[in-house]
Simulated assay, not measured.
Amino acid sequence: MTWSLLMLLLVAALIPASLWLVRRLQTLQPSRGPRVMEVVAQLPLGPRERVTAVRVGRQVLVLGVTAQQITLLAEAPEGSLELPQPSGPRQDFASVMQSVAGRFHPGRPR
Score class of each variant (00 low, 15 high):
residue 72 L to Y: 00
residue 76 A to Q: 09
residue 13 A to H: 08
residue 86 P to I: 07
residue 25 L to R: 15
residue 22 V to H: 09
residue 6 L to N: 13
residue 63 L to H: 01
residue 104 F to R: 01
residue 63 L to C: 02
residue 39 V to P: 00
residue 92 D to Q: 11
residue 33 G to L: 02
residue 63 L to M: 03
residue 110 R to L: 14
residue 109 P to C: 04
residue 96 V to P: 00
residue 83 L to F: 10
residue 91 Q to V: 11
residue 33 G to W: 03
residue 92 D to L: 08
residue 91 Q to D: 14
residue 89 P to F: 02
residue 34 P to Q: 04
residue 37 M to T: 15
residue 5 L to M: 10
residue 73 L to W: 02
residue 61 L to N: 03
residue 74 A to S: 07
residue 32 R to I: 06
residue 58 R to F: 13
residue 36 V to P: 04
residue 36 V to R: 09
residue 78 E to G: 05
residue 91 Q to N: 10
residue 11 V to Y: 03
residue 50 R to D: 00
residue 34 P to D: 05
residue 7 M to H: 12
residue 23 R to C: 10
residue 73 L to Y: 04
residue 47 P to C: 07
residue 23 R to F: 13
residue 63 L to R: 00
residue 58 R to P: 08
residue 103 R to W: 12
residue 98 Q to V: 10
residue 63 L to Y: 02
residue 107 G to N: 07
residue 69 Q to V: 07
residue 28 L to E: 07
residue 32 R to M: 09
residue 90 R to G: 13
residue 31 S to N: 11
residue 74 A to F: 00
residue 85 Q to T: 15
residue 94 A to R: 08
residue 6 L to H: 14
residue 80 S to N: 11
residue 59 Q to M: 10
residue 41 A to L: 03
residue 39 V to H: 01
residue 108 R to W: 15
residue 98 Q to I: 08
residue 105 H to Y: 15
residue 31 S to L: 09
residue 42 Q to C: 06
residue 91 Q to T: 11
residue 48 R to K: 12
residue 7 M to R: 14
residue 79 G to P: 05
residue 79 G to A: 04
residue 54 V to H: 00
residue 77 P to L: 04
residue 108 R to I: 13
residue 65 V to E: 12
residue 3 W to G: 10
residue 81 L to N: 02
residue 89 P to L: 04
residue 63 L to T: 01
residue 78 E to F: 14
residue 100 V to Y: 12
residue 44 P to G: 03
residue 39 V to I: 06
residue 96 V to H: 02
residue 52 T to F: 01
residue 56 V to R: 01
residue 80 S to K: 10
residue 77 P to Q: 02
residue 58 R to S: 15
residue 81 L to P: 07
residue 76 A to L: 10
residue 73 L to T: 04
residue 5 L to Q: 15
residue 71 T to S: 10
residue 36 V to Y: 10
residue 99 S to Y: 08
residue 88 G to W: 09
residue 24 R to I: 05
residue 62 V to R: 00
residue 64 G to N: 04
residue 87 S to I: 15
residue 43 L to A: 02
residue 104 F to K: 01
residue 38 E to C: 08
residue 86 P to V: 11
residue 26 Q to L: 12
residue 31 S to A: 09
residue 55 R to L: 13
residue 95 S to W: 02
residue 54 V to F: 00
residue 76 A to Y: 09
residue 59 Q to T: 13
residue 100 V to I: 13
residue 94 A to I: 08
residue 66 T to S: 13
residue 15 I to W: 15
residue 15 I to A: 12
residue 61 L to H: 05
residue 29 Q to C: 07
residue 31 S to W: 13
residue 76 A to F: 08
residue 10 L to F: 14
residue 49 E to Y: 05
residue 3 W to R: 14
residue 70 I to N: 04
residue 69 Q to W: 07
residue 104 F to H: 03
residue 75 E to W: 03
residue 63 L to K: 00
residue 22 V to G: 06
residue 6 L to R: 14
residue 16 P to F: 09
residue 63 L to Q: 01
residue 41 A to M: 03
residue 14 L to M: 10
residue 16 P to Y: 06
residue 81 L to W: 07
residue 40 V to N: 01
residue 57 G to N: 05
residue 106 P to I: 01
residue 22 V to D: 10
residue 14 L to V: 06
residue 29 Q to I: 06
residue 80 S to T: 14
residue 53 A to V: 05
residue 16 P to K: 03
residue 84 P to H: 02
residue 47 P to G: 11
residue 33 G to M: 02
residue 37 M to Q: 12
residue 93 F to L: 13
residue 56 V to L: 11
residue 3 W to Q: 11
residue 39 V to L: 03
residue 10 L to T: 07
residue 30 P to W: 14
